[in-house]
């Protein structure tokens, strides 16, 4: 049975995630995607951004605590109300069109409709001429656009992106941002991680600043870029928060001893 309720807001209640014994997400309680637009997860490398996205998507289980999606206690991935674009695009050993077709077939969309949607998705991302090209022969940037095309084709209520433009040239980055803005305008809520501050300024309506597995600040983008309250976020904006371990300009983290490994 296909669910008709959107998978947001995502509520996290005392969520923990460990790698072996090391905690990577620590006692996180918050509500995400409770407002329209794009929520940007900012933070230095190793802050836990990718992990938080996977937890929010429901493809990783929390080791402790609860996550709920809208009215549901499970992510309902089989309903495809949410889609994710990973940092490294993964495509099946089929053509570009075949990859989108695979996702739409899972969705139960009938053949003629799929064909049309595939064409639209490839047009939108500038990949029309690669319709029959094996996806894995495309360049990295083209593969990332294809991953976004696949996500777009599913028309999700919630789209998650893990640094989708991290390795792309400015033109490809712009194209992806344009598609994102179209989807946002169409009502899709987006949760995205990045450490590109300019991109965050362009796209975000909300900002979550993550540091060592904890949310240090969660506010509107306007407020965040005007001047965050958290001192670590301030340092991050100034470009002084260099490294998530000892080279940070400050060491004010209360659970520092926990993190000494």
């Amino acid at each position: 049975m296909i669910s008709t309720t959107p998978p947001y807001p995502i509520r996290l209640d005392k969520v923990w995630f460990h790698a072996r014994t090391k905690p990577l997400i620590k006692d996180l309680s918050t509500t995400i995607a409770d407002v329209e637009g794009l929520t940007m997860i900012l933070g230095p490398n190793g802050a836990g951004k990718s992990l938080l996205l996977r937890l929010c998507h429901g493809i990783l289980p929390a080791h402790d605590g609860q996550i709920s999606w809208g009215e549901r206690q499970d992510p309902g991935l089989q309903d495809q109300r949410q889609a994710m674009v990973f940092q490294r695009p993964v495509h099946l050993r089929r053509s570009a069109a075949g990859n989108i077709d695979f996702a739409l077939k899972l969705h139960g969309m009938p053949g003629p409709e799929r064909k049309l949607r595939i064409k639209e998705a490839l047009d939108l991302t500038g990949l029309s001429r690669y319709h029959d090209t094996p996806a894995r022969l495309l360049s990295f940037g083209e593969q990332q656009r294809l991953a976004l095309a696949r996500a777009w084709a599913l028309a999700p209520d919630l789209l998650l992106l893990d640094e989708p433009t991290a390795n792309l040239d400015p033109a490809a980055q712009r194209l992806i941002e344009e598609v994102l803005q179209k989807m946002i305008a169409g009502g899709t809520r987006v949760l995205m991680s990045s450490h590109d501050l300019n991109q965050a300024r362009r796209l975000a309506s909300q900002v979550i600043f993550l540091y060592r597995g904890r949310i240090k600040e969660q506010t509107s983008a306007e407020k965040f870029f005007a001047g965050p309250e958290n001192d670590l976020a301030q340092a991050f904006l100034r470009g002084e928060l260099l490294w998530w371990r000892r080279r940070a300009v400050f060491e004010p983290d209360p659970d520092k001893e926990n993190d000494d490994f």
Binding site: R54, H57, I59, L77, D79, A83, F86, V90
Partner: peptide, 10 residues
């Protein structure tokens, strides 16, 4: 290679 992507697609 496929696990996350296939899970994500439901």
């Amino acid at each position: 290679e496929y696990e996350e992507q296939l899970m994500s697609l439901g």
